[in-house]
Nucleic acid binder design. Structure first.
Lengths: 131, 131
DNA sequence: GTGACGCCTTACGTGAACGTCAACTTGACG
DNA sequence: CGTCAAGTTGACGTTCACGTAAGGCGTCAC
């Protein structure tokens, strides 16, 4: 019950990324593993951040955008920083995400229409297709 | 009523992209402008495709993924090609889009929670924040 | 005819996000 | 003691999606 620290290898296995990726994220200040001599030890906090990083990437956010977003999740840690500014950034990002979701929903609908047309054509040609 | 062809400059103004971008998309076979001598003339079809390209980009799809998707919208044009295969590709892409939408929806919810927490903290410090 | 545009091709440059390779420690094991 | 796996730091290479000159052609206004 003290598996709180992970080596780079464990992290790679857990999240399916390469060591290079984790070192790269550290260099870009997205992760902050502590050191045991020269070796990196990733904390629970790093794991939480990495999860969010990978999620953000799937939404098309750049690492720099993700880095800004991540700061919001450290609010408990921030004491005297520019919290209000971070809040504003997050608000903008949230709006962008909602807009993206709406667009995506619309695009899904359009694509579904196209696929209905495609199904009709294929069936008219005698080709069996899945629903 | 024959504004069906556009020059590269008109396209750039209409879609807020650079000439380089349109030439690049042509080189990657995403667009197929006809030629008037050496000059490109973009058709209604190219405009429709470009709109989809730009939309796809906002969803984080690569140009290669978008190129595959675009084929589906040309189904009327395809006569003897591998339509069934294209249909399958589109089906996978559609599933990916739905998964992405679901993830995005979840992420929006989580971020909203975080921002609620942030609001509480800011207000406790006497900082006024928007809803 | 001579600019000034607008367009063309060719080709090298760039930033993001890593991949890859070399050379070196360091701890565990037989 | 050797060596082997797992880690380290550079440093250069790669892919994607264009940016950015450099130089040439056609045509329209003056």
């Amino acid at each position: 019950m003290s598996e709180t620290f992970s080596t780079i290898g464990q992290m790679c296995a857990e999240f399916d990324v390469t060591p290079r990726t984790l070192r790269f994220y550290e260099s870009k200040e997205l992760l902050f593993p502590v050191r045991d001599g020269s070796r990196r030890l990733f904390t629970r906090r790093d794991r939480a951040r990495l999860k969010l990083i990978l999620q953000g990437k799937r939404f098309g956010f750049s690492l720099e955008e993700i880095r800004q977003l991540l700061d919001l999740y450290d609010i408990g840690d921030q004491q005297r920083t520019q919290l209000a500014r971070t809040y504003e950034v997050a608000m903008e990002r949230l709006d962008a995400m909602k807009a993206q979701r709406d667009e995506l929903t619309a695009a899904i609908g359009e694509l579904e229409d196209q696929m209905q047309t495609a199904r009709d054509i294929l069936r008219a040609r005698g080709v069996a297709v899945a629903a």
